[in-house]
Design a protein around this nucleic acid. Structure first.
Ligand SMILES: [Zn+2]
Ligand SMILES: [Zn+2]
Ligand SMILES: [Zn+2]
Ligand SMILES: [Zn+2]
Lengths: 135, 135
DNA sequence: CTACATACGTAATAACGTAACGCCGGGACG
DNA sequence: CGTCCCGGCGTTACGTTATTACGTATGTAG
């Protein structure tokens, strides 16, 4: 993986990334917009443009099954491989992990099919340990 | 049109499933709606309600990264485990496969975390063999 | 008959996402 | 210096995806 030291964030990118980091969990683009109205945000595009860059930089991940975005849980966001997410349907907590062995098997399949892989989405839905306790 | 096996489908469910089967690939809910206007469909909810049931029956899968739906490629739709999808970004072809070994590793992770798994989304984006030919 | 469950039809609205326009500031380069 | 280009930005308007709310019809159990 190339070591992507990435340029200073623009003001809007920093605001959006700050919102996601502070939230400590997933936010939709429109939720971010609402959080940033006091900072001058007025339209969805301002959020989506910043999110596009942050995703490109690997600092933010998109959760396809939620139509939401979450700050990468890796400190400093040094580049990492494919991320996977466990999403609790009770409490909404999202845990990011790196499914290296599973990815290796998926890549075996893509190679055998001649499929050139560019991006992988792995999202597990269920109930986290906290929400599982019988009470 | 298409096969009907499995639970007795209602008229609307059969129409939606037929559209997806005939398409041989993913369709959005609104694309299905347009296809079925001549059959009397007038509103998105008619499509979404049918899709909900078809997904519940395992006859249709939702592609989260496309906001689209696809008929299960297992003819007869005998029950199967978690499905995974390779989506060609050039030609749009979607290949369904069963990532049993990768799922087993993902389940190892969920067990170790006490996460109770209910649904899994695995979607690979890239370029299929056809679209990869040097030419 | 009543109560409940399931499917359905329709209208309206919410939630998510993008196209198109123009403006501005900074860097390349003649 | 002037001019060109380009990335980021702000705004309007629009397109796409999904749900809420309400009412109807039908079948079945008690
Ligand atoms: Zn990450
Ligand atoms: Zn939880
Ligand atoms: Zn399937
Ligand atoms: Zn292709």
């Amino acid at each position: 993986m190339s070591v992507e030291t990435h340029p200073e964030l623009t003001k809007n990118q920093a605001l959006v990334f700050g919102s996601l980091s502070d939230a400590g969990g997933p936010l939709t683009a429109y939720a971010i917009l609402d959080l940033l109205r006091d900072s001058g945000f007025r339209a969805p595009l301002q959020v989506y443009r910043a999110l596009d860059k942050l995703v490109e930089y690997g600092m933010v991940h998109r959760l396809e099954s939620l139509n939401a975005f979450v700050a990468c849980s890796h400190k400093g966001c040094s580049s990492h491989g494919t991320a996977a997410f466990a999403i609790c349907e009770q409490c909404g907590v999202v845990s990011e992990f790196t499914p290296d062995k599973a990815m290796s098997l998926l890549r075996d399949w893509t190679r055998s099919e001649g499929f050139q892989l560019s991006r992988t989405t792995i999202e597990l839905r269920g109930t986290c340990r906290q929400c599982n306790v019988p009470n």
